[in-house]
Design a binder for these strands. Sequence first.
DNA 1: CCTTAAACGAGACGGTACGTCCAGTCTTTAA
DNA 2: TTAAAGACTGGACGTACCGTCTCGTTTAAGG
Lengths: 208, 208, 208, 208
Amino acid sequence: MTSASAIDGPPEPGAAPRRARSHDKILETAFALIVERGYGRVTIEAIAAAAGVGKPTIYRWWPSKGALALEAINHRIGTVLDFPSTGDIATDLATQINGAVSVMNGPIGVVYRGIIAEAQSDPAIATAVRTTIIEPRTRDCQRRLAEAVTVGQLRGDVPTREMVELLYGPIYYRFLLGTDVLDPVRTPQLIARVLDGLRPRPANGGAG
Amino acid sequence: MTSASAIDGPPEPGAAPRRARSHDKILETAFALIVERGYGRVTIEAIAAAAGVGKPTIYRWWPSKGALALEAINHRIGTVLDFPSTGDIATDLATQINGAVSVMNGPIGVVYRGIIAEAQSDPAIATAVRTTIIEPRTRDCQRRLAEAVTVGQLRGDVPTREMVELLYGPIYYRFLLGTDVLDPVRTPQLIARVLDGLRPRPANGGAG
Amino acid sequence: MTSASAIDGPPEPGAAPRRARSHDKILETAFALIVERGYGRVTIEAIAAAAGVGKPTIYRWWPSKGALALEAINHRIGTVLDFPSTGDIATDLATQINGAVSVMNGPIGVVYRGIIAEAQSDPAIATAVRTTIIEPRTRDCQRRLAEAVTVGQLRGDVPTREMVELLYGPIYYRFLLGTDVLDPVRTPQLIARVLDGLRPRPANGGAG
Amino acid sequence: MTSASAIDGPPEPGAAPRRARSHDKILETAFALIVERGYGRVTIEAIAAAAGVGKPTIYRWWPSKGALALEAINHRIGTVLDFPSTGDIATDLATQINGAVSVMNGPIGVVYRGIIAEAQSDPAIATAVRTTIIEPRTRDCQRRLAEAVTVGQLRGDVPTREMVELLYGPIYYRFLLGTDVLDPVRTPQLIARVLDGLRPRPANGGAG
DNA sequence: CCTTAAACGAGACGGTACGTCCAGTCTTTAA
DNA sequence: TTAAAGACTGGACGTACCGTCTCGTTTAAGG
């Protein structure tokens, strides 16, 4: 999902050549501007001016600032990386989740934060966020978790979808409520606690 | 925290009597309007008009829509309820967390969602949300969790603060990303999974 | 001076076509509204609303209500009429000054009064009033007076500029201080007294 | 006319003691503030603040800024001076008119200008200006002019009221339209021209 | 190679809301 | 009992952007 918006489809195919030039420039300008000033402080007018583009050109392709920002982020992220598979689920989750954490701590995180804010009052954005960002990664994660269930590393009586929520929930909690920093070093510990639970463990203890 | 804003302190004591009248009317109108139209669709101008109040009267007391909404929510919630204590931590957590869930599912949730969105680009709001909403409840929760640690119901090697994140993270994840409904019936199951972990359990899976 | 504001020059040439539509509507609405309610009771907001135009559209072209009113007046007056020349200076002055008097007694006078009031505290307006209203007419008048000097109808030792002040001073005095009505019938008498002076005349007397 | 407003009579007599203190302070503050910033840039709020007085205290005594300014001016001017009488009307007029000119050129002129502006859209102020400022001085002037008529220095067929307008008109013209400075040195010349008229004079030009 | 229709930059437009200032009124408090 | 102090409603201010529209001007494709 790097080209046209997930909210309104591409206006029409075949008119592409001249388009691409402004198109990318707009996405990149929007991204840079949001990172620089913060999502709430950026206006479409400012993006148009900075991109050397007319406002209607932006409105032709994106229905709102949120839709533009969302595509800007996806344009920036590029392909979703495959979930690693070393055999140990804790290690693989740490790798993957640390990817998410470092994205959240970087410039993309600034934009992402703004988009999630927008999604709170714009259902179209909310849907697009789930469709283009959350769900692809969730599916990947679920796939790896299912494997782990198969080989007996995880319980089979918990839906993998719910496992994803238990794992990512605390990450988003910190990201959006700012109660604590997202420290990649502590990710493995966090995962271990989700996997092992909070009750005292009989013998081996599970501090990972 | 039901009276003056947490962002700018009360302008001065002693001028209260006439104030209270408009003050409460504004808070209630703001709340009702946000619930009715959604946070993003409500303007301070509309709140002033609906409350039969001049715009400057609002600006005299609150620096922004977010600050007003936050106080409106706290004015509405009133006192924080004590954490229940039946002896079983899972039961008590379910009781408490279900309180949060039902609040999120009701009108307060609509306003709260908007405030969290605002907090993403307004650090003052973010701080006020933590100070007046998150932290009091977190401290209460931590207190009960510490008790449970003492009586051997929970591990002693996990900071209670982190336990709170593991418990509430998935709740906020669903609340803000809308990946699934927040169903109070499933809360005990969710808590059980956080307490027990995702790894297969030897037999009964439990408190050892 | 009937077109663009005398205070800020025309924003740019060539952008005219779409502009003219609102432009004229605004000028005419402003004029009508001021005549109807009085200069001081008219707001830019009301003009915008009555003209079916956004407030910023007005502010784009005129920096203040005074500037707008001034252009509205000039737009209304149109071209400055040539000074008549019958050969007798008293007759010609009466014709010309009566033009001014009837303007002051009509709707334009209502607006003009407001602009002169504004000019008392806004130097830009004061300058524009002189440049676009007073001076062109003064120059015309001076030209005719100079002719009269040449043919011996007027003294050569009084600057024509000062003559204009002696002639128009009493008109404006009544107009702005409201000490008496401006009655066009009495204009020739007034002029005669300025021309002949207040001292007793030897024989012929000049009471016109 | 130095005490209560000419627009609404004195609120009540006998309440004087506490009043006088604020009363004068307000008048003096208003005057100073208007001179400093210009009539249009001064608000009643600012006057109240600068005088250390509540706004309602001002509204209790004066119905508007114009009424306050007018009284401030009269409070400042104090008594109207008697018209001088040396025997030569030209000399006496020069003395008197130069008094007016120097007032117009000083701080009082700044306030007076603002009041006249206000009078353009507030008939109550306009009337008060005539009643308390213009007319007393006009009557004085007329009295002296009538004397001059009696002794044959001035024509008997021109109403003295009109003579006043011919004399003061050009002064106010310059004062309000700013076409030229009001130079006291040139006042005698101006008066001479009004008295002698603009037509060529046979020989000595003069009192016949 | 030349036309011609689209997409473009530019920015004016009707509007909405902003956050502020001040007017003029009303209430409370202190003297 | 009075008036100071100042909070109040309310209207307008001048500004920032919104999303739409109307302009010429590229510009690349098809004739």
